[in-house]
Simulated assay, not measured.
Amino acid sequence: MTRWRHPPSGRLKLNVDGAFQMDTGQGGIGAVIRDENGRFLAAIARPFSFVCSALHMELEAMRAGLLLVIHQGMMNVDIETDCATVGTALKGDFEDLSEVGNIIEDCKSYLRAIPSVSLQSIYREANDVAHRLAHLASSGYVDEYWLEEAPVIIQDVLYEDSCTST
């Protein structure tokens, strides 16, 4: 089974995920940043109302995660998302005129502001922490950000990742 992996020495890892509840139009985002040892550095979980799609939430998660990285002055960041469409949209050199086009353009701009960045798609099983944060936010259970000290609601998944990462 695919699991979360530590970033290489000298790099950080940002994992992002979005959640969307079609029946209610509610959504949520989750993002978490860890260092080369798997140590928690920061995270955010935020609910959204009047969401148009799952892609909307995936992109909002990316935007929030990138802003967290930038505001914390972090460099050398490997970014992972379990939504391949997000990676394709952000690597494209065309202007997106869809309802999420402005979010895509924001993310492209933020990616350029990070000195050393890589972006890749991963399997959902390697994105458990961000996934949990997004789903808790979409259900209205959490709206918060954390720096340096991991919240109790994700400590078990962080621990599992640190034990199984190779």
Results as ranks from 00 to 15, higher is better:
Y145L: 14
A19W: 00
R124C: 09
C52F: 11
A19G: 03
E160K: 13
A45S: 15
Y110C: 11
V69M: 09
D93I: 12
L90P: 10
D143N: 15
K13M: 12
I114V: 15
V129L: 02
F50V: 08
D161Q: 07
R124D: 14
L68W: 11
H71C: 07
A84C: 06
R132C: 02
E99G: 09
L97R: 11
E144D: 12
A84W: 10
A137E: 11
D82N: 13
V32W: 05
T81H: 05
R112W: 08
F20R: 00
A64I: 12
D161K: 00
L119R: 09
F50H: 14
A54Q: 00
H6C: 13
T166I: 06
D156G: 02
Q72N: 10
I70G: 01
E144P: 05
Y123N: 09
N15R: 02
K108G: 11
A89I: 04
L158N: 01
R39M: 12
R112S: 15
G101T: 04
E144W: 01
M1A: 05
I153S: 08
Y123A: 10
W4Q: 03
T81P: 00
S121C: 14
W146C: 06
G87R: 15
V86H: 10
H135N: 14
A130P: 08
I154T: 00
G28N: 02
A31H: 03
L147P: 01
V16K: 02
Q72I: 04
D106H: 11
T2E: 15
G28S: 06
A43V: 13
M62C: 10
L133N: 03
N76R: 12
A130H: 12
N127S: 08
A31W: 04
